[in-house]
Design a protein around this nucleic acid. Structure first.
Lengths: 349, 349
DNA sequence: GATTAGCACTCGCCTAGCGAGAGTGCTAAC
DNA sequence: GTTAGCACTCTCGCTAGGCGAGTGCTAATC
């Protein structure tokens, strides 16, 4: 697997990939000679193509069809060949605008982001919502709903709000509730939700023991809030049906497994969470994870104040327009990061 | 359009529909005579079928294929012929269990409900989440996040919580915040969100004028909370790809419009919101709304304490197994109503 | 030695043609 | 009113043949 190809082979591989990405048809030597001005005859190109196939960069669906890039070919293309399509000012502006319109609410922004990706790329989009384990506790608020029901609200530094109705047999007075709130806020401010589980719990427990009267109830309450916070990570998927627009999906049955995968949140979650931190392109068989051969995903992480909190990306056939998609995904992630960071600043100032 | 068919015609229409629902193939006279014990010869059945076609209940895809039910035929079938499949104890139990497991959170229950419908019917499910305009205001809470950002939480009697981060240039003191909370809670308790918009606003406005000092800020805050509350209604769709399992979708291109419709929340919203209150079966062309010819939807409303708050349903080809789906949807809605009503009781007791 | 032209060959795809099967409508007999 | 029989129609699947695209090889050319 010679990792360096001579310039002409590179050029030819690039041209074949470019062409195949838009046409979805195996591309032949003649087509290349005609369509692209390489100053080479079909015969020469044929020879080069034979070499590239030898090297594992190209494949023939059957004798005497044209060639198509193999997974390895795509990999090389993505890593070394493609010329990233610059997003125009206008496109970047659009991302800004669309996201800005919904700047108020986290949920809404996430949702909007995935919709935007779908529109810009014409591929289904995946969004892994803020990874709340990494979020930092900011504020807890306990609101009485009735004698036995209490609404607990946890606000994180990303502005995310989690709410949970807790039923409470024992009954708690308003004064007790306030004191519990106070203690919790004092103790928990600035702590990452991840670190919350056990270590601090005992400390708070002893703190509360001082107020013998509601020890039991308070501990109960606390463990229940913590136990159910931070589990709300979600994978949003949007435009799933866009994948059907791709010509390779005309034989539907082949892609049943893919469609099933899209319906299963856990798989997607796993898939995305492997890609936390940075930008990733995973091609075809590189997604061993279930049913996704024949597909590629392009993902980028987004962050709040430098801390990665989630992943966005799009899903498409291996014949995906990487040169176009990659910048879109990256820019969107960047702008999203910016926006979220601003939001967070505002909240914590 | 004679609204009454003679018993034998009914029987034949029913048998044809039943058969077509499972086979998805046009059904012929001979098949019926063989498969169902009607004591009639194919020829007789042919005559009856000709009559039924005359009456608009059956259609022929082409000469000398079998017959398939027309939309009108389905309508008659649903209204008069089909024998509803009783759900077994076990199935009802299952609905209870699945929903119970997630009884704590509204969002989660809604989500779970739609998943459940998909699993039980093998069709995509649609859920219109609680119609918050009909919800009753219970409590508002203002939480300071920073000098300029305030988190407003509105709790409704269904236990639904809406949150909104509000930015606030002017700056407000904690005391002011508390007083605003107080006044709002006093004034708004028990009011339906729908009635909130204008009528009460002026009253509250005059109330606040008394406290000249923060008049402007308070009004601003209030209008912003109200303006953005109650807009969070959502259509959940789940298992969209299940529709592809239906044989009629093998020619994919025909159903592109449908798939598109599934991606557009507004359309679905409109579609579902037409069906508020009770159980509906809309067949084929009865869904004039965009791209849904060839499809039927079965919906049922669910309620909290007798007040309709949302709609659940499934979407399938006109050749849908109504007899099976209808009870499932109805029962699920009923159980969901029960569960939500309980939750609401607990909150308001 | 690299490049190119020419040519025979291979293979998938499209079309036409054919036969089988399923289903119908009509007619005539029961 | 019901049924048997029959001719007719239409779809579907299969096969064969022609076409086109593309290849690999060889020999000629630069």
């Amino acid at each position: 697997m010679a990792s360096e190809l001579d310039p002409r082979k590179k050029k030819i591989l690039k041209v074949i990939t470019d062409d195949y990405i838009v046409s979805a048809e195996p591309v032949g030597s003649r087509t290349i000679a005609r369509r692209y001005d390489l100053g080479l005859s079909p015969a020469t190109i044929r020879n080069e193509m034979a070499d590239l196939e030898e090297g594992g960069y190209l494949e023939q669906p059957h004798t005497s069809a044209g060639r198509i890039p193999s997974d390895q070919g795509y990999r090389y293309y993505v890593d070394a060949l493609m010329s990233l399509q610059q997003l125009s000012e206008k496109e970047i502006e659009r991302i800004h605008q669309e996201l800005d319109r919904h700047r108020q609410q986290l949920e809404s922004i996430i949702h909007q982001t995935s919709k935007l990706l779908v529109q810009m790329t014409r591929y289904p989009s995946l969004v892994l919502s803020p990874h709340s384990e990494d979020a930092v506790f900011r504020h807890i608020q306990l609101v009485r709903l009735s004698d036995t029901a209490i609404l607990a609200l946890v606000v994180t530094d990303s502005g995310h709000v989690e709410n949970k109705v807790i039923e409470f047999e024992g009954g708690i007075s308003d004064a007790e509730l306030d004191r519990i709130s106070l203690i919790l806020n004092e103790k928990l401010r600035g702590i990452r939700l991840k670190d919350l589980r056990s270590s601090l719990l005992s400390e708070i427990r002893s703190e509360l023991i001082a107020h013998q009267d509601f020890y039991n109830e308070a501990i109960q309450l606390l463990t229940r809030v913590i136990g159910t916070t931070g589990t709300k990570e979600r994978v949003y998927i949007d435009g799933a049906t866009k994948i059907l627009e791709q010509p390779e999906f005309s034989e539907l049955h082949k892609f049943k497994p893919l469609m099933d995968a899209l319906d299963e949140e856990e798989r997607l979650y796993k898939l995305l969470s492997e890609n936390i931190g940075g930008t990733f392109v995973k091609i075809g068989s590189e997604n061993k994870s279930l049913g996704l051969s024949g597909c590629s995903i392009v993902t980028a992480s987004y962050e709040i104040a430098g801390r990665t909190v989630g992943v966005i990306g799009v899903l498409g056939p291996t014949r995906m327009d990487y040169a176009k998609v990659l910048p879109i995904v990256e820019n969107t992630a960047a702008i999203l990061s910016e926006l979220l960071t601003q939001m967070s600043r505002r909240c914590s100032k």
